[in-house]
């Protein structure tokens, strides 16, 4: 089977509540049997992200985000060039750095779309907080439309 030109990557830990918003979006798309894109859950490790999005026409990344004054569930949509923050990710290399490294090595997708969802709860557990759960509905609906539009291009 040929590689899909589109990938949706959900970054996060589904056992830390709202940190799992990315995987939740991917799981929802999988449950709806979306076939127009490759669906990937990721812990955000940079080199694996490079592998996943390299050579794709469109890579969509969904991740939880920290903001100084959070509005839980608020969605930020970021296009390339993505300005990553300082590297304080738990794996030493964050999404911003992954994008910059991919840029240096010519491994960026043609288009990178990032959905960053402001988190409310990140304690132990699998349930998303209500506001973040609603953001999953919103992102899934938007992606459905985006993938449909892409197919009829």
């Amino acid at each position: 089977m040929s590689r899909s030109p589109i990938v949706v990557i959900g970054i996060g830990n589904p056992y830390r509540r709202d940190d799992g918003v990315g995987p939740a979006v991917v799981q929802r798309l999988a449950a709806e049997r979306v076939t127009a894109a490759a669906l990937v859950e990721s812990d955000g490790e940079a080199t694996t992200l490079l592998e996943q999005w390299q050579g794709r026409r469109l890579a969509i990344v969904v991740d939880a985000a920290h903001t100084p004054v959070p509005v839980p569930g608020r969605i930020h949509r970021l296009d390339l060039p993505f300005a990553g923050s300082s590297s304080t990710s738990s794996h030493g290399l964050d999404l911003g750095l992954a994008v910059r490294l991919a840029g240096e090595l010519g491994r960026l997708p043609q288009r990178l779309l990032v959905f960053a969802v402001e988190a409310a709860e990140t304690g132990y557990g699998c349930e998303l907080s209500p506001a973040v759960a609603r953001s999953v509905d919103e992102i899934v609906a938007e992606l459905r439309g985006l993938l449909r539009a892409d197919r009829t291009r």
Binding site: A65, H66, S85, S86, T88, S90
Partner: peptide, 13 residues
Amino acid sequence: CISCATHFLNLTV
């Protein structure tokens, strides 16, 4: 390895 369970995109708007 200051081991980790969550990882966030630090976002400045």
